[in-house]
Design a protein around this nucleic acid. Structure first.
Lengths: 305, 305
DNA sequence: GAAACTAATTGACTCAGTCAACTAAAAGCA
DNA sequence: TGCTTTTAGTTGACTGAGTCAATTAGTTTC
C-alpha cells in the first residue's frame, strides 16, 4: 500500500492543476474552438494521417462525438479525409493548409498563456518546472517517449551553466572543492573573452530547453586543438551523448585543419576516459595532484588527426 | 522571452496531464456526482463555512451555476447554509453529517484511483512524483504563500550561476554581447581561485532553493574592498534585496577594517546606482566604453568607511 | 462462408454550463 | 444623511457539448 500522505499530496496537486489547466484553456474562449476541438486539431496537425479510432482512443473521446467534430472540420475545410487503402473502413485524416494555419494559431495562443505564467518566475525556475513535469511524465505516462536531444552552439548564459553544473556535479560526486569551480570559471571566461569563431566552438546539448551537456574546442596554437569542459548531466547519461559531443569536436577539428586534439582530464572520470579511448585518443602523460582537494590522477590525452 | 523549448515541453505536459486527469475523474462516473459537483463538495467539506463567492472564485465557477449546485446539495441534505451575521448577503456553507460521509466517499474513490497509478511504480518513484508536483505547485500557484529569501555564503555551483544569470539578463535587457559573459566568468573564476576567506566573501540570496541574487567582496589591496557582481534576478526585484546585499557588504567591510569600498558599474544599471547613492557611495570617475557592444558609461564609485 | 468483430456514422436526447436580468445588502461618497 | 455604485446570491431562458443506441460497411476468424 502506498503512503497516504503521498496520495493526499498528489490529490492536492491534481486539484490545483485542474484549476490551472482550466485557466490556461481560457485561451480558446474567444475562438470558435472548444478545448476538445483544439485537442483534436492539435493531434491531427502533429500526427499527419491518423485514423479516427486512434484519435478517439488517445484523446479518450466518444467515437460518435469525434465523428461529428471531424465532420464539422471537414465542412470548414480544416481537414481532408480519405479511405485507408489498407483498411477501407478506416480513414486517413490530414490537415489542409487552412487547417494547418489554424493549428499554428492555436499553438501560438497556448504558448502565450504558458509564457505569461513563466514570465513571473525567476530565471531558472521555468527550467525547474519543466524538469519536474518531465519527471512526472516519465513515471506516470506509460507511453512517454524518450525526448530528443539537440546539440547547438552556445548562447548567453550557457558558459555560466557549464561552470555551475560541472562544479556542482564534481563537488557532489568526487568531493572536489571550490578551486575546481574557480578553474572552470576561468577557463570558460577566457574562452569567451578571446573567442575566435573561425577556430573555436562550444557545443551545448539541450533537451526540452534544458541544458544537459557541453564541450568546447579552443585553439591551443601550433595546430593543436584543445578539447575542454566535456560534461553530460546525470539525468542524460547513458544516451551516448558524451560520444556525440566528442565526435562533433573531432569533425570540427578536422575541418579546421588542426593536426592534433589534446585534452586534460582526471582518471576518476571513467565514462569520459572510455570515450577518449574508443575514439582513438592516447594517454601521453600523467601526474598526481591535489588541485581540487582529494588526490587525483591528472592525465593528458592526444588524438592525431 | 522564455525559451520556446521550455514552453513546448510545458504544453506537452499539459496535454498529457489533461488526459491523465480525465482518466482519474472517471472515478465519479458511477456516482451521481459530476466532476464539478465533487470539486464543490470537496471544497465545502475541507473549508468549513466558506461563502458561495469564495467557492466560485477559487473553483472558477459561474455564480449562477454554483448557486444551482448548492440548491441541489441543500435539497439532498448534503449541506446547510445560514446567513453570515457579519454580512447578511453572504452565506456560511457547511456540510451536514450526510454530506461529510459523501465527501469522504468521494475522497476514497479519488485516493483509490491515484493509488492504482502509484501501484505500478517502483519503490521511491511515488516520492519522486510527489516531490516534482510540489515543486511545480510552489512555482505556478500564485496563492502559494510568499516564499522567504535567505542570504547565505556561496556553495559549489553558485559562481557558475552568477555568470549564467548575469550574462543572460544583461544580454537580454541591454543587448550586451558575450564578452560580458567572458568578463564575468573571469572575474568570478579569479575570485574563487584566489579566495581568501578572511577578507573576502560572496553572498547568495536564495528562495526555495533557487538563487535570486548575489554580491561579492574581494580584496583590492591597500585597505580597499571591491564590491562586485551585484545582481538581483528580475522576478525578485522590488523586495529591497539589492539594498540588503549591499548592506551586508558594508557591514563585512567595516568588520574587516577596510577603509574604503570601491566598485565599477555602468550608469545604465539604474537600480544599482540608486542603491549606491542611497548608502553613501560617491562617483569618482566615469568613461565611455564599448567593452560589451553598445556604448556605455562606465563608472567608478567609492564609499569611505 | 457464416459468425464475430471493428471503423465510422447518424438519430435522438439530456444535462452541464452560460448569459442576462433581478433582489437585497453593503460600501463609497459628497 | 441620502444617493449611487458595488457585491452576494438567485432565477429564467437557453444552447450546445457530449452520450447512448442503432446502423452500415468493411475485416478477421476458424
Amino acid at each position: 500500500m502506498v503512503d497516504s500522505g503521498l496520495i493526499n499530496a498528489a490529490r492536492d496537486f491534481n486539484r490545483f492543476y485542474t484549476n490551472f489547466l482550466g485557466v490556461l484553456n481560457r485561451a480558446y474562449l474567444d475562438t470558435d474552438f472548444t478545448l476538445t476541438d483544439a485537442r483534436v486539431l492539435f493531434e491531427i496537425g502533429s500526427r499527419e494521417g491518423v485514423s479516427a479510432v486512434a484519435l478517439a482512443r488517445d484523446l479518450q473521446l466518444d467515437p460518435a462525438y469525434l465523428s461529428r467534430i471531424l465532420k464539422r472540420f471537414r465542412a470548414n475545410d480544416l481537414i481532408e479525409t480519405k479511405a485507408d487503402p489498407g483498411d477501407l473502413r478506416s480513414q486517413i485524416i490530414k490537415v489542409t493548409t487552412k487547417g494547418y494555419r489554424q493549428f499554428e494559431e492555436l499553438g501560438r495562443r497556448s504558448n502565450t498563456q504558458i509564457a505569461e505564467r513563466f514570465a513571473n518566475l525567476v530565471d531558472g525556475e521555468p527550467q525547474t518546472v519543466v524538469a519536474a513535469m518531465t519527471s512526472i511524465r516519465a513515471l506516470l505516462d506509460p507511453d512517454a517517449e524518450p525526448r530528443p536531444v539537440v546539440i547547438r552552439g552556445h548562447r548567453p548564459g550557457d558558459i555560466g551553466w557549464i561552470v555551475q553544473s560541472q562544479s556542482k556535479a564534481y563537488t557532489e560526486e568526487y568531493g572536489w572543492d571550490m578551486r575546481f569551480e574557480g578553474l572552470v570559471a576561468e577557463v570558460a571566461g577566457k574562452f569567451l573573452a578571446n573567442f575566435d569563431p573561425a577556430m573555436e566552438y562550444c557545443w551545448i546539448a539541450e533537451r526540452d530547453g534544458i541544458n544537459v551537456g557541453s564541450v568546447v574546442i579552443t585553439n591551443g596554437g601550433d595546430g593543436v586543438a584543445k578539447l575542454r569542459l566535456l560534461y553530460v548531466d546525470k539525468a542524460a547519461r547513458g544516451l551516448g551523448l558524451g560520444r556525440m559531443l566528442v565526435d562533433e569536436c573531432i569533425r570540427f577539428a578536422r575541418a579546421k585543419q588542426y593536426r592534433q586534439i589534446s585534452l586534460w582530464t582526471n582518471d576518476i572520470l571513467h565514462a569520459a576516459r572510455g570515450i577518449y579511448l574508443k575514439v582513438g585518443f592516447r594517454l601521453v602523460s600523467e601526474e598526481r595532484h591535489r588541485m581540487f582537494g582529494p588526490e587525483e590522477n591528472g592525465q593528458t590525452w592526444v588524438l592525431d588527426l
